[in-house]
Amino acid sequence: MKKLLLIPMIIVIIITCVNVFQTSSKEVKSKIPTVIAHRGASGYEPEHTIPAYDLAKKMKADYIEIDLDITKDGHLVAFHDGSVDRMTNGSGYVKNMTLAQLKKLKIDTSSKYRNLKILTFDEVVKHFGKSVNYYIETRELGHKLVMEEKMLKILRKHHIIGKGARKGQVIIESFSSKSLKKVHKLAPEIPLVQLVMIKDKKTKVTNKQINEWARFADGVGINSQRVTKDLVNRVQKKKMFIYVFFIKNEEKETQRMIKLKVNGVFSNYPDKIREKSLLKG
Rank of each mutant, 00 (worst) to 15 (best):
F21V: 13
Q22A: 15
Q22V: 15
S24D: 11
S25R: 11
S25Q: 12
E27P: 01
E27M: 14
E27H: 13
E27C: 01
E27T: 10
K29A: 13
S30N: 15
K31I: 13
K31S: 14
T34G: 00
V35T: 00
A37C: 06
S42R: 02
S42F: 02
G43H: 02
G43T: 04
Y44Q: 03
E45G: 04
P46R: 05
E47S: 05
E47T: 06
E47V: 00
A52P: 07
Y53T: 07
D54H: 06
D54P: 02
L55T: 05
K57W: 08
K58D: 00
K60V: 02
K60C: 01
K60N: 12
D62Y: 00
D62I: 01
D62M: 01
D62H: 01
Y63H: 03
Y63F: 15
I64G: 00
I64M: 06
I64S: 00
E65W: 07
D67N: 12
D67A: 10
L68W: 07
D69G: 14
K72T: 09
D73G: 09
D73K: 08
G74P: 08
G74Y: 07
H75S: 15
L76K: 10
V77S: 07
A78D: 09
A78W: 03
A78S: 12
A78T: 04
F79M: 15
F79T: 05
G82N: 15
V84Q: 11
V84E: 11
R86C: 09
M87L: 12
M87S: 10
N89D: 15
G92R: 04
G92P: 12
Y93D: 13
Y93G: 08
V94H: 11
K95Y: 13
N96H: 13
M97W: 04
T98S: 14
L99S: 09
A100S: 13
Q101H: 05
Q101G: 05
K104C: 11
L105V: 03
L105T: 04
D108W: 10
T109I: 06
S110G: 15
S111R: 15
K112S: 09
K112D: 14
Y113H: 06
R114P: 02
